[in-house]
């Protein structure tokens, strides 16, 4: 999809404003937002493309207004609800529905170094198909914009 997230080449966003001695997180909640996304992702109910798409679906005006981790939280809530890990009512009330049995978190502290620092997710796949083009070939790109997630820029 060619939503507002597809920013390459757009005009009018103004100057870049680098911050001196920038902290890793600007508020405690930003770190928690990142950590919640990764820890909830350990349920393997979605992959990286689905989590990107959930942020790409944020309506344009809101996308432009929100800070980076606000988008992450908005996207995470949608994924949690869509996959049934939580209900929208639970999110609104901030507590589990009555009678909910407590699950066991799939990501433990001991597994964090493996998740972040050693294992990673390898994206290479063995395929049988022969590529039609090779690096350096001149190609003409088609302007294809399906409504789902794509990494094809505008």
């Amino acid at each position: 999809m060619n939503g507002v997230h597809d920013m390459g080449g757009m005009h009018g966003f103004g100057p870049i404003e680098p911050e001196r001695d920038e902290p890793v997180f600007h508020a405690r909640w930003e770190g928690r937002a990142l950590a919640l996304q990764l820890a909830a992702g350990a349920w393997r109910k979605w992959n990286i493309d689905a989590s990107r798409h959930s942020r790409e679906l944020i309506p344009g005006p809101e996308y432009l207004r929100m800070t980076y981790y606000e988008k992450w939280i908005a996207g995470l809530i949608e994924l949690l609800v869509q996959t049934g890990l939580v209900t929208r009512t639970e999110v609104e009330k901030g507590r589990p529905a009555p009678g909910t049995t407590k699950a066991v978190p799939p990501l433990t502290t001991a597994q964090v170094p493996d998740l972040l620092l050693s294992r990673g997710v390898r994206y290479t796949r063995d395929v049988q198909a022969t590529p039609r083009y090779k690096a350096g070939d001149r190609v003409r790109a088609r302007n294809i914009h399906p409504t789902g997630h794509t990494r094809l820029p505008r």
């Binding site: 928690r32 950590a35 990764l38 909830a40 939580v86 699950a103 964090v112």
Partner: peptide, 27 residues
């Protein structure tokens, strides 16, 4: 975010100590 974290912790979906470890790793 605090409310969302409490909900996910209470449901047993995330372990708060694992969240601490993730933040510590990136900091």
């Amino acid at each position: 975010v605090k409310a969302l974290e409490s909900l996910l912790v209470e449901k047993g979906l995330v372990d708060p100590a694992a969240l601490d470890a993730i933040v510590d790793t990136y900091e």
